[in-house]
Design a protein around this nucleic acid. Structure first.
Lengths: 237, 237
DNA sequence: TTAATTTATTTGTAGTACATATTAATTCGA
DNA sequence: TCGAATTAATATGTACTACAAATAAATTAA
């Protein structure tokens, strides 16, 4: 079953198995390193390497003397390290950019499902601020805030966390054209209006038009993407 | 700037910095562990722990004698470990389930942008197989294949990888109702028809209806989600 | 020239020792 | 007796050393 995994990788999985078998709950403390190493039959070095791997994924936190405690694995914990490393290739960047567009269009139903007065008010405030400024940089910030509020409004915490990461990413990687605001077909006002008394279906269409410049600029932002064939992923147990 | 990061974590970032500063490319080999440890001024243990963290994120691969080589950081590398660990909490699961629905609805434009004859043929074949069987399990498999093909069709490799992960996840966590096939408003045939000679907008609406049972069943699949307030994330540099 | 064998090198693993931080216990003073 | 300060105990963090295992490179044999 196990191919050529390094011992630390095997132990990493053993620990996860050990945790679920022993019925450890969030917040519980694992045995101390020496004990756990002995229990699993490896040296402390290997155990610590395995623990380190679990730590970067957000499974555990360790503190001196206090030991290793189980934490809620934030899905995007490791993600963050990758994004902020600046080593992401062009293709992956474009992929993420596309994913964001898909999400903003696809989230419509959840916006209508979870919308609350305070969200609508927040959006209204942002729009008012937009109408009061002509500064391009300021407008960009407000635009980000508007869309960020939508993500929050979706009621999906993971999605919101994801969006926050992408924001910082694309702020540096995909700067906007200067005329982005002018060329917009559907304004933030229109979107808000639909949110107030429209349907999810109407919102999707409107959002698609609102993001039209993004769709059009993609070719220049991410030129000549190598259109490699997607091959079937071999599933792993 | 650095809070209370462990040395290995600091070194992890130092290595990333080192890589980008030295202009290392994908496939290049890093200096051997002893050298790198000395260069960065830490023991080999710490260096190896840092390398291990980078390895789980898919930044590097190491082989005996050959050394450490830079690889393309697969965004969902660590993700996979988390998902397959079975320790994901209910909220995160629901979040991911929702995200998948959003993506399938939001991907319409990219389907039309990248659709090719072979994709349409593949979909056609699946539909024909569906029409030839009544076995519930078989139908579920074909359904997964149909949607999986759509992801492939989107031309977004990262998205396709993501979807593969979610498939294995929800196969165990969110089993289907027995009558899912009967209650479907829009069939795969209809979706394919729209893909052939319809518009992205029409496809979105159709897909939303096609997924209607999924939307409706969400309440039973993920009961009484703790509707915790989404708090502002403090951005980190 | 090619195949087989040996050598050298680099990662993988183990053990030990000590530094450091933090909790727990103990002492001292009011 | 209570509370603050000090001390002790303990678990993680880091370093160093040694050796095992794998494999690329060099050497030898056919």
């Amino acid at each position: 079953m196990q191919k050529d995994l390094t011992l630390a990788e095997q132990i990493e999985r053993k620990i996860l198995k050990y945790i679920s078998e022993k019925g450890y709950q969030l917040g519980d403390s694992l045995p101390k390193e020496n004990e756990l190493a002995e229990t699993l039959g490896v040296s402390r070095v290997v155990l610590r390497e395995a623990l380190s791997r679990l730590r970067i994924l957000g499974f555990i936190e360790t503190k001196r003397k206090r030991g290793t405690v189980l934490t809620s694995p934030n899905i995007f914990y490791g993600f963050k390290t990758i994004l902020s490393s600046g080593t992401l290739d062009k293709d992956s960047l474009k992929d993420l950019y596309e994913v964001r567009l898909m999400l903003e269009i696809g989230m419509a139903d959840f916006l209508f499902l979870h919308k609350e007065e305070r969200h609508l008010n927040e959006l209204q405030r942002i729009i008012e601020e937009e109408n009061m400024t002509v500064d391009s940089e300021q407008l960009t910030k407000l635009d980000i805030r508007f869309h960020s509020t939508l993500y929050k409004m979706s009621g999906n915490k993971s999605l919101y966390a994801f969006q926050n990461l992408l924001n910082t990413l694309f702020a540096t990687y995909a700067p906007r054209r200067k005329d982005w605001k002018v060329k917009q077909i559907i304004s933030h006002e229109s979107l808000l209006e639909i949110l107030k008394c429209g349907t999810a279906d109407a919102f999707r269409t409107a959002m698609r038009l609102h993001l039209n410049t993004r769709f059009e600029n993609m070719g220049t932002l991410f030129p000549e993407k190598a259109v490699k064939e997607i091959t079937e992923d071999e599933e792993e147990a």
